[in-house]
């Protein structure tokens, strides 16, 4: 049977144009639709107001301790609907002594597994002996106003909350790691499912002194409370396989506590608060001349400020 085909006739040509045109129109339509502002994913309004009893009996004093003041301002901010808050962090790197208490406090608070870090502190040597200085730079998530990690997510698993915190839905994240590449600050890390115990047992001799293997070590599976939910990693449950990042300890804010890194900073170098409150400590700090933001040229508008 001859299978030679004939040239494209007019009907086929019109059909081809119609199908391709319809395809292009559909593609443009869905892209434009998803580019338009969408309704907030998170609850807003009255239901997000928290009337916390923290510090209720302690009267404000002039020149009170910065931490007491920040906690008082935090309680005040939580009494507003979420969309009226704007959380920011200010880090005074002149006061940072490179103790890593914030890094370790964060690991403990969020029960971070090996290879996952929300707040590393970089160390840079400046100059040469005898004119030598060491500079420390804590790097939490910048909670950018224009985050490059959000639009690349293919499944709407990450978004910016009305209070400015960029969050991840661990139940939705597919672990493609596109957001890790999009973040210029390296603020997102992937949870590859590792455990401390299995790694310490690796290669260790048998016997009673052998470290407990990962899967059977009970402390590896203590749930963390990120995003005010209980997450257990055993059985390959989320957040195993997910992208993870600093979230300004949202679960602590809900109960009137500042982020763990702020609490553990022994140099008092980390400040946190509501930038929408003109009387807050952070609002006073970010207008100073010696305030900078990291990698501003990318246009992400980071919400973490550095006093230099």
């Amino acid at each position: 049977m001859s299978e030679e085909n004939k040239p494209l006739d007019r009907r086929e040509f019109l059909l081809a144009g119609g199908i391709v045109g319809a395809g292009v129109a559909a593609a443009v339509g869905v892209v434009v639709k998803d580019r338009l502002p969408a309704a907030p994913v998170d609850p807003t309004g009255e239901q997000t107001i928290r009337r916390l009893p923290v510090l209720k009996t302690l009267k404000p004093k002039p020149n009170e301790d910065d931490h007491v003041r920040m906690q008082r301002e935090l309680v005040k901010a939580m009494a507003k609907p979420v969309e009226q808050r704007r959380w920011i962090m200010v880090i005074d790197i002149r006061k940072c002594i490179g103790c890593y208490a914030c890094t370790i406090g964060c690991v403990a608070e969020n029960k971070l597994p090996p290879g996952v870090v929300y707040r590393p502190v970089t160390t840079t040597e400046i100059g040469e002996y005898p004119n030598l200085r060491i500079k420390f730079l804590p790097r939490p998530c910048m909670q950018c106003e224009n985050p490059s990690c959000v639009p690349v997510c293919p499944v709407k698993a990450t978004w910016k909350r009305p209070d400015g915190v960029v969050t991840i839905d661990y139940d939705k994240c597919i672990g493609c790691r596109y957001c890790l590449n999009a973040c210029p600050y390296g603020a997102r890390t992937s949870d590859f499912g590792r455990t401390y115990a299995s790694e310490s047992a690796h290669g260790a001799p048998q016997g009673e002194n052998r470290p407990v293997e990962g899967p059977s070590a009970p402390w590896e599976h203590q749930p963390n409370n990120e995003y005010a939910k209980s997450w257990r990693r055993d059985g390959h449950n989320s957040p195993v396989g997910n992208a993870r990042k600093c979230h300004f300890c949202l679960h602590r804010l809900e109960v009137g506590q500042p982020p763990m890194c702020v609490t553990t900073c022994i140099g008092r170098a980390t400040y946190f608060g509501d930038a929408n409150d003109p009387e807050s400590l952070v609002s006073e700090l970010i207008v100073k001349n010696n305030v900078q933001r990291l990698l501003e040229h990318w246009g992400n508008k980071p919400q973490c400020y550095y006093i230099v």
Binding site: T103, P114, G115, V117, P120, V121, T122, T123, T124, L137, R139, P184, Y185, G186, T189, S190, F192, R194, L294, L295
Partner: peptide, 13 residues
Amino acid sequence: QIHGLEQAFQDMR
């Protein structure tokens, strides 16, 4: 892009 990040928290990943 942030100098010293690799040394800031050392891990094979």
